[in-house]
């Protein structure tokens, strides 16, 4: 399990690429993409455990991460300043400068 509050607003992160067989809340379209942490939303019970009857513990930090749309979609039609924000649990994030897993 990831250590708590590993990231702070302003940190650059990359979303892990994974498709576990259990329930998870990280959309596929954002996996592998780099963005910037804009907020720590709080610490929440782990939905990957709750969905299968587990306790959801330990609770895990959830971050609001902002991604440039042009980074997410190869053919994005709008201005380069447009972004998408996704709330992502800590164990789905790596520092952006780290090798892709």
């Amino acid at each position: 399990m990831a250590q708590t509050n590993r990231y702070r607003p302003g940190d650059r992160v990359r979303v892990r690429v994974d498709s576990p067989t259990h329930h998870f809340r990280t959309p596929t379209y954002i996996q592998g993409k780099q963005g910037q942490v804009v907020a720590l939303c709080g610490t929440f019970s782990n939905p990957e455990s709750l969905a299968h009857g587990g306790s959801g513990l330990p609770k895990i930090p959830l971050y609001r991460v902002e991604f440039p749309q042009t980074e997410v979609w190869a053919e994005y039609h709008g201005p380069a300043a447009d972004t998408v924000l996704v709330d992502i649990y800590e164990h789905w994030l790596d520092p952006a400068n780290q090798e892709v897993r």
């Binding site: 809340r25 959309p27 939905p47 609001r64 201005p79 447009d82 998408v84 709330d87």
Partner: peptide, 15 residues
């Protein structure tokens, strides 16, 4: 307008 930044919020988690 093009000069207005569009921010999409994908509310998939606890907020």
């Amino acid at each position: 307008a093009e000069e207005v930044k569009v921010r999409v919020l994908d509310s998939t988690a606890d907020l």
